[in-house]
């Protein structure tokens, strides 16, 4: 999932300042799971913004609507009926959602309410962990299902570095050393031999070789 966190209210207020009729648009997918931009969070933010506007004697309307997904046009189109009532959208989606909405409605400003963080998992209630960089060439097999590109602070493919101590990373004692985890896990499968080869430099062209990436699947096209 894509994780995000809400921007500070002051920053949001500054961005929406020029506009009088604003629709706060939540997203019911990833950012709902990470409690940043779902229906509940959208209602909270809109309520706080309305109060803030009233306290500052600003004549502003802030309505709310949450889409199932903001990054899929079939859902974004649901804004079609209401969009004429507003002069700005405040999107509580990830960066992809914000841009998908903006792309679809070029005539109206779309303002981001969240900071998009990373691709990760919900490890526990209230705890999300970065685990994937979307590198375009998954190497998890070699490393026992633990990604050194995402979870080693130095992205080592031939780790661990000299800063691994007692299972934690030198960068932050709260961060487990990915390489210690890789070694432990491969040892469990009797597959430590996989780490004896030198993994060659990563092919970053698969991530950024031709600029922004796209996936084309003819079998999925109409």
């Amino acid at each position: 999932m894509i994780t995000a966190e809400q921007k500070p209210i002051d920053e949001i207020r500054e961005m929406i300042n020029p506009y009088k009729r604003i629709l706060a648009v939540g997203c019911g997918s990833c950012v709902a799971e990470c409690a940043a931009g779902g229906q509940k969070e959208t209602a909270m933010l809109a309520s706080a913004l309305r109060m803030a506007a009233r306290m500052n004697h600003e004549d502003v309307t802030i309505d709310e609507k949450t889409l199932d997904r903001q990054c899929v046009r079939d859902f974004v189109i649901q804004l079609d009926d209401v969009i004429q009532n507003y002069d700005a959208l405040l999107s509580l989606a990830c960066g992809a959602g914000v841009q998908a909405v903006a792309e679809m409605f070029p005539e109206i400003p779309v303002i981001p309410a969240l900071n998009t963080e990373f691709l990760g998992e919900t490890r526990d209630q209230g705890l999300w962990i970065e685990s994937c960089q979307g590198c375009g060439d998954c190497m998890l097999y070699f490393f026992g299902g633990i990604c050194p590109i995402s979870r080693c602070s130095k992205q080592l493919l031939n780790g661990p570095c000299g800063g691994s101590k007692n299972g934690v990373c030198e960068v932050d004692p709260e961060v487990p050393c990915a390489w210690q985890m890789i070694i432990d896990r491969l040892a469990r499968f009797n597959a430590l031999g996989r780490l004896e080869m030198i993994y060659p430099p990563k092919d970053w062209a698969k991530k950024q070789g031709k600029g922004p990436r796209k996936i084309i699947r003819e079998d999925q096209q109409s």
Partner: peptide, 11 residues
């Protein structure tokens, strides 16, 4: 957390 929100808008 909600207290922090109202504080951030000046309540």
């Amino acid at each position: 957390r909600t207290q922090a929100i109202i504080e951030s808008i000046g309540l």
